[in-house]
Design a protein around this nucleic acid. Structure first.
Length: 920
RNA sequence: GCCCGAAUGGCGGAAUCGGUAGACGCGUCGGUCUCAAACACCGAUGGAGCAAUCCGUGCCGGUUCGACCCCGGCUUCGGGUACCA
């Protein structure tokens, strides 16, 4: 049999389509297994070889589970809303829906060629109205619920209204943007507009004024995870801070549960750590400092309550409302000038410019423990959005306070014995306290930890503050001033937002004349004249952000065509949660936080059965490009081979990697590549032109993009799949490098050759030698797949095939077993073998073989070692092997004789599984 | 700065529980086939040495009969994050 990959692969892909091989239905008689890939954003560039890495790994796992008898859900879809399609629409005038659909078609054809076992009947697209109606629906639920801190879950806003009308804010603890206090009489006296304004303070999806990341170039606000180092993640445009009224999700209410429930999931430690850092829990105390000659009190947050005796000044964030209250008339102008200066700096400028700046407000506060007067400053090193927007400064033990104190010549009081604060602050939370005695509290001589506890206890007892937990995690800004996203199911009456009725969903995204903002700066939907409810109320002009549609898509796959619910209780009860989720680590602080939040909210409403959506998660590494270089000798058209370039003055030039194979340049193709190079001359080494290389991001401009279609065309999908796995651990980032692909292809051809030899008429059982090879392979491959170690399982296949070839094995039983094992890796070739062996159904349903330990039981002495008069042999033997036989065999081994040196052993100790101790 | 991770031949990587370091593949060298090349196949391939043997998993030290693996201290390179009080 020839290995004609094109013929085999097109034939079996057609067979899978014709037979709906990968269509999946709920089957209560079978255990479920849900394998999910993070769905792609269909970009215009198409797939490169990096994208399928995770898909291949998850496909192998899904196929393996199916062969083990699980009912496997393995869907795929598209995260179709997003900024690039809209930016492209602005440039070209093409409707984003059209370009998105074109890109999806291209992705689909590329994916199909690789032989994935996706159930395409469950495909979802976030821009499909039948999909986004459930995104809109979820938003409505969040609008209609608040977070109850006593119940520790989301409850209907109707409960809150009931309570307010009977008891006011007394006896209920809703999570709110501000702490409000009013009576039932107050509440009942307010009109509807005012009541709805109050409720907005509590809704989980609420509208609020907030400091946002505004990106002028994109014309929209961005979430914290969409900004990195002061630049937008998409496009790299500068981002500035601005106060705007926006829709916001109260993610912060779930901070503690998002933190705690990390213990329920099987994710890598580093990913959990990233999430913990992003949530940023810190335990401390909130304290009030009285302002001298005034009844104003400044509230601050600190994790170092032990350092209050070292507070020598206080600092307010420029945006803090305290600033206006404490600024004295004499300082008013100076403060105003400073605030103006700060306001004109972008976030990025603030980050780059770390110069100390600030201004004195003219007021003093009273240190509540020492009774000393301390000046109050304003500075932009204090953030408005964290804690209370005001700090107590302890220059001796905080480097930022230290820098500020040195700049403004403020006193530095060291509080820890032996700490030298003449050059820098002592930030570590360790040591013995000193200088910390006041009229009512003495911390001297205590360890820092004890001192913190003692100080907190004192503060609480004296009523000057309370113990408080703060989180870095902020509420998620949910409005985007863009066109290509889900419309909000919201209209405005009397300038107050109201929800549409559920029966009005989906609210379709309308056509627009222009994708640009309106002349008066409204979002693009402002261009739509009849963007109104049937009653004539104006609809919300913003659309939802990218993460809206991607937060609950894993639930929709469970029941994708349901027009009554996001997911039916029956489908959710069956599929429960994602057993294996595979995707990039770049989503650690965005998607994976939002999805967990969204799921927990639906869990609170009793709509889903699991508190966590993704049980096990694997982050696949990135595949980088491997750029090839040629070296042109300066001012000539002569190119010198990599190894000889030191002898010349050369300029490296990137060359298209399709002209290079195993680092050897096809010089003829190179001359044809560009007119400039048509008459290029080459200085060769060993008769060849060797290119240099560098590892860079895969990108068109570097000429290093490898399209999987080209690999499939040349070597076949099975080779591509095996090769991507063989490259190294799935989790690891690595450069794409075709240098080893021939070896994998050679292995498949060897397997075909071996298969061709097997004698189907005579299905004799395997010889013990063959059995050992095959059962070793079953064990190895099974364990490797469970451990997500695919590179070593590919190696195991190569060893087994080499060993069987060396034996000139023609056992059909052996080959049939290998066919079952290799089916997840090379499904096309396995399908071909399976049918040639006379089976009717797909190899995807072939039972996964079990290994027989007894086939592997022959004990072998691996090596001897000696210590303390003992000789220990390491024996490769099964756990249940006969101990006497194993020790006898060890003693009979020639290696043993050398160590025993003619002596008779006193005692032989056999450790089951592996080790034999022989005491001489 | 802080947090996390990594470092093994010419290269990608193995060693899954502390037990013969370098599996498997690439590359290189030698051979068979061929007029020749390509393909294929066979053999060798960490370093030094004719050899016995010695050395060898980023560096320094420790624990252990035994360390790529565990502990302490560094170096370098990735990734995340950053005036978070």
């Amino acid at each position: 049999m020839e290995y004609n990959h094109k013929d085999i692969e097109t034939r079996w892909q057609q067979y899978w389509r014709d037979n709906n091989t990968y269509k999946c239905i709920e089957r209560p008689d079978r255990k479920k297994f849900y394998v999910l890939d993070m769905f792609p954003y269909p970009s215009g560039a198409g797939l490169h070889v990096g994208h399928p890495l995770g898909y291949i790994a998850s496909d192998i796992y899904a196929r393996y589970k199916r062969q083990q008898g699980f009912n496997v859900l393995h869907p795929m879809g598209y995260d179709a809303y997003g900024l690039p399609a809209e930016q492209y629409a602005i440039q070209t005038g093409q409707h984003p829906e059209k370009t998105t659909n074109d890109n999806i078609a291209r992705y689909r054809s590329q994916l199909d060629k690789i032989g994935f076992s996706f159930d395409w009947s469950r495909e979802v697209r976030t821009c499909d109205p039948e999909y986004y109606r459930w995104t809109q629906w979820a938003f409505m639920q969040m609008f209609d619920h608040y977070y109850d801190l006593d119940a520790d879950k989301a409850l209907p806003v109707a409960h809150l209204v009931d309570h307010f009308s009977q008891h006011g804010t007394e006896g209920i603890r809703p999570a709110g943007s501000e702490e409000l206090s009013f009576s039932a009489d107050d509440w009942n006296a307010w009109d509807e507009k005012k009541q709805r304004e109050i409720l907005m303070n509590y809704r989980i999806a609420y509208q609020g004024e907030s400091m946002v990341n505004w990106c002028p170039a994109l014309g929209t606000v961005l979430a914290n995870d969409e900004v990195s180092e002061g630049l937008s993640v998409r496009g790299g445009h500068p981002v500035e801070q601005k106060v705007m009224t926006q829709w916001i999700l109260r993610v912060s209410a779930y901070a503690q549960r998002l933190l705690d429930d990390l213990s329920l999931v099987d994710w890598s430690d580093s990913l959990k750590e990233t999430q913990r850092n992003w949530i940023g829990r810190s335990e401390g105390a909130e304290m009030r400092f009285a302002v001298k000659d005034s009844d104003i009190e400044l509230e601050i947050f600190t994790t170092r309550a032990d350092t209050v005796f070292g507070v020598t000044f206080m600092v307010l964030a420029p945006e803090s409302e305290y600033v206006a209250q404490v600024t004295t008339p004499e300082q008013k102008e100076a403060v105003a000038t400073y605030l103006d200066e700060v306001r004109h700096k972008t976030e990025r400028e603030r980050q780059i410019d770390k110069k100390v700046s600030g201004v004195f407000t003219g007021s003093y506060a009273i240190n509540p423990l020492s009774g000393k007067e301390i000046p109050i400053y304003v500075s932009d090193y204090v953030l408005a959005g964290y804690g209370t927007g005001a700090i107590m400064a302890v220059p001796a033990h905080d480097s930022r306070d230290y820098a500020f104190a040195r700049h403004f010549n403020l006193p530095v009081i060291p509080l820890i014995e032996g700490a030298d604060v003449s050059e820098e602050s002592f930030d570590a939370k360790e040591g013995v306290m000193t200088n910390s005695a006041g009229p009512e509290l003495n911390l001297n001589g205590l360890q820092v930890k004890e001192a913190i506890a003692r100080a907190k206890e004192f503060i609480e007892r004296k009523g000057i503050g309370r113990v408080k937990v703060n989180y870095r995690l902020r509420d998620a800004i949910f409005s985007r001033q863009r066109y290509w996203g889900e419309p909000f199911p919201v209209y405005y009456k009397d300038d107050t937002p109201y929800l549409l009725d559920e029966s009005q969903l989906p609210l379709h995204l309308p056509e627009v004349q222009s994708y640009l903002p309106t002349a008066d700066g409204q979002p693009p939907l402002g261009n739509v004249a009849d963007w109104k409810t049937p009653e004539g109320y104006r609809l919300e002009l913003c659309t939802m952000p990218g993460f809206a549609g991607s937060s609950a898509y894993y639930l929709r796959y469970m029941d994708p065509h349901n027009d009554k619910a996001l997911v039916s209780p029956e489908a959710n009860a069956y599929w429960q949660d994602v057993d294996l989720y595979v995707g990039g680590a770049e989503h650690a602080t965005g998607h994976l936080i939002y999805s967990r939040f969204w799921n927990k909210f639906l869990y609170d409403l009793g709509l889903v059965v699991r508190p966590e959506p993704f049980k096990k998660l694997v982050n696949q590494g990135m595949i980088q490009g491997r750029t090839s270089f040629v070296y042109r000798i300066k001012d000539t058209n002569t190119f010198v081979s990599h190894g000889l370039r030191k002898d010349y003055d050369t300029t490296p030039i990137r060359v298209d990697i399709s002209l290079v194979h195993n680092d050897i340049l096809d010089t003829e193709a190179f001359r044809r590549w560009r007119p400039d190079f048509a008459d290029a001359e080459f200085i060769l080494e060993d008769g060849r032109y060797i290119c240099g290389y560098a590892v860079e991001k895969m990108s068109k401009s570097m000429f290093n993009v490898v399209n999987p279609d080209d690999i499939v065309e040349r070597y076949g999908a099975d080779t591509l799949r095996l090769y991507e796995m063989f490259l190294g651990p799935v989790e690891q980032s690595k450069p794409w490098d075709t240098n080893g692909i021939d070896g994998v292809n050679r292995f498949l051809r060897k397997l075909v050759a071996l298969f061709s030899k097997c004698d189907q008429a005579d299905r004799r059982d395997m010889t013990p030698e063959e059995r050992k090879i095959v059962h070793k392979l079953i064990k190895k491959v099974t364990q490797d797949i469970e451990n997500f170690s695919f590179n070593t399982s590919v190696a195991a296949f190569m060893i087994a095939v080499n060993d069987l070839s060396a034996l000139k094995s023609d056992s059909t039983v052996a080959l049939e077993t290998i066919t079952r094992l290799i089916a997840p890796f090379a499904p096309h070739l396995a399908e071909e073998f399976w049918h040639q062996l006379g089976h009717d159904g797909s190899v995807a349903d072939a039972e996964w073989p079990q290994w027989d330990e007894s086939a592997l039981t022959e004990a072998t002495v691996k090596y001897p070692v000696s210590f303390n008069g003992k000789v220990r042999f390491v024996i490769e033997a099964p756990a249940d092997a006969d101990r006497d036989a194993v020790s006898e065999q060890a003693l009979a081994d020639p290696a043993a004789a050398k160590w025993l040196d003619g002596k008779t052993p006193k005692k032989v100790i056999v450790v089951p599984g592996k080790i034999v101790n022989i005491v001489i």
